[in-house]
Design a protein around this nucleic acid. Sequence first.
DNA 1: GCGATCAGGT
DNA 2: CACACCTGATCGC
Length: 819
Amino acid sequence: MDTSTLTLNSSPLFLSSFSIFAADARQVPPLKSIQLLSCGSPLPSLPSFLPASKIIPNTRFIVDGFRAAGDFSISYFLSHFHSDHYTGLNPNWCRGLIFCSETTASLLVEILKVSPLFVYALPLNKTVTIDRSNVVLLDANHCPGAVQFLFEVGLSRYIHTGDFRFRESMKLDPFLQKFVGADTVFLDTTYCNPKFVFPSQEESIEYILKTIQRTREENQGSSSKSVLFLIATYMVGKERILLEIAQKCNCLLHVDGRKMEILSVLGLGDAGVFTEDASSSDVHVIGWNLLGEVWPFFKPNFVKMEEIMLEKGYSRVIGFVSTGWMYEAKKDGFAVTSKGPLEIHLVPYSEHSSYAELREYVKFLRPKRVVPTVGVDLEKPCNKHAMAVQKYFRGLIDETANKHEFLTPFHQKAVNADAKPTSMNEPAENVVVEDVEEFVPMAPLSEEENCPLGDVKLVKEGDMEAEVEELRHCLPSWVNGDLMLSLIRGANGDVVQAVSDFFERETEYFNHSNVSTQPILHAEANSRNVFLPTPDLTFCEGPRSSVHYKSSQDVKNMGIKKLGIGSSSATNRKGSSSMKGKRGKASLTLDPCSKTKKKGKASITIDSCGAKQSTITKFFGNSALLSTNDDDHMMIAASVSLNKDKLAVVDSIEPYKHEVDKFLQVINFSIDRNAAEYLMDKAEGNIDVAVNMYYSSCDDALFKEDTLLSHTAPGVGHAKSCTGESRILSEEKLNVYRMSVGGTSKDYLNVNVLLPIEKYSPIEHGQAVGQHRLKRTEETEHQTKLLGRTSSNLPEQNRAQLQYSLGKTEHTIQIQTPT
DNA sequence: GCGATCAGGT
DNA sequence: CACACCTGATCGC
């Protein structure tokens, strides 16, 4: 491929496509946009109801927003072929051009029957210039054809992830690397909450493979056709599970006609994997909800299942249901429910990023701002949700840029509400949409649109209460009321200045607030439910970016017990000696300050937590996250040596016992029980609140560890989320760890899962679209004529064409190659 | 009568 | 709390 930039201009392309479409179609709505474009008039301004997450600032690009399509835009982007993203698209679509990947384009045209006139398949990993902005499509590691969009608009850079699951290799992508420090990341925040935990995709696949293989072995003596395996899937996505089964279990997979059609479009139809002949396979792919309802909690449909079994002539059925996540890591994950010969395995398999992965991604990108694309209240473009999401990534976004730009909106509002940037070269992140397209000017923005912070209020002089409240939204939660007040005063009531001042000296403030033997516990702060560190029980939230906890001495000096925050490298080193030869052993991180380096921790566990051991084991129950071996005791003894007295007290009271149990599991026992109880008390027994408090007060230190982890052994890092096993495992670079899998106590299974995962080569769905490919050809006047286009529609001489061939329909895309 | 939206089921 | 889909009923132009 040459390195020339492909250049597209929406207006002429759309006008010509539309005229062809109108000539063909029975009836075409009179579009205002066509009228306006025809006479060179500007399109109407973007409506306020359009969520900011669907608009690329400084453009008229709409991403995954077909439902809200209108005359204001003719350039639409589709990240992937899932109905919640393409709703609004149908065979009659003619409101604008649709830019997407080749795979998605095929699906749109062949499955959804959208007119290919409007579908523009763009190549992956190639810069395309559309309406003067550069766009790059990157694989999103979601479903086949799913992409992330990288937009370069003037000097601003925006990333729209669509739906995506982060993987380490993304950090190596040269296009993405150029977007480090991007202005905004529009992020798939589906699982942007630590309460959703799930293992790596590899683990889940491995689990299914093992289960099938084991069952087959067990049934070798009997009739080979006795056990039917059912895999529940939906339209597009999770194909990898199917491909792996076919490959590793050496069999064909039966699919129905509809599914086969889709697989064919994906280029998987004739891969020797799928068959429509039911009798030639004992693994059948079925509709995603046939085996039972998934939400809110899985309810098996054994009646339907038995029906299928009898209908297909089997005597036993094992079904697998991929449930995107394991909510609260409860017993549903990897759980087995059975009734007679019917068995259903719930397999968490996510094509969205986990919370840790999202953080990893944001941390890598260090954007100035993160805008959630999921969970956005459509009614309010600038809502609290966006603000809450910012909080989740506090410390990972570019604080330096933030203190100047992130807070500019309300600064401007306070000073001059009408202030608008004069040049597109000036960063003006406060403005969601701006006038930069000279030929398509837009109406002035509403106040609301100017405010990505949503609920930030105007700063009023003399009202310190309000300013402290403002400040609270912008500063880490460990900052107490006193500090905020003094910051406000020092800045003469200017909140922006106060925030700026704060970040200048964040480390200093943090250390100060923690070495103090007497914690500043203001009534005011307490009444607002601010989580304040105490010398005795402090969470690891500190200045980000700067390196903390270099040594346990530092930790001590700050009065911080690094409460089992994952496995600091130090912790791991300590742990590794005692863990040698005990691979697969579950163990939680001990207090890094503790001098008891050796196996003494085991006795601590028993001494201090012995009474609770049964409880905790019971809690895990048939979710089977614990080994039952005595030798493999889970150790939940973080900091115990320093908290024995407290523990004793807690043992006898324990107000939110059950909640604390759950909470600890959700956060993977990253803190000790005392701390968990303290938090739970603050959260008044609400697990969600506690989890949020935990994560919002425990930023970098924790995720530094996760980073370490994912570098050494991706997948294991997530495995710990569901197994409760120690990160020490990954430090040891174990290839095998033990995972217990269970359902009812009777069906309790133990499965050895092999890692690392690297042995699986990811299926590059985005590449394989069979014969329906995007072909770059030399300019052909002949084809142009075929499409009824004249040369006058194609202004540049030096042009190539992207041809999208689908049966008899040919669709050319005008590409201008700059000379 | 058609498209858009919603409820309920797969 | 919300992975993702289809079909038919209903609303509104």
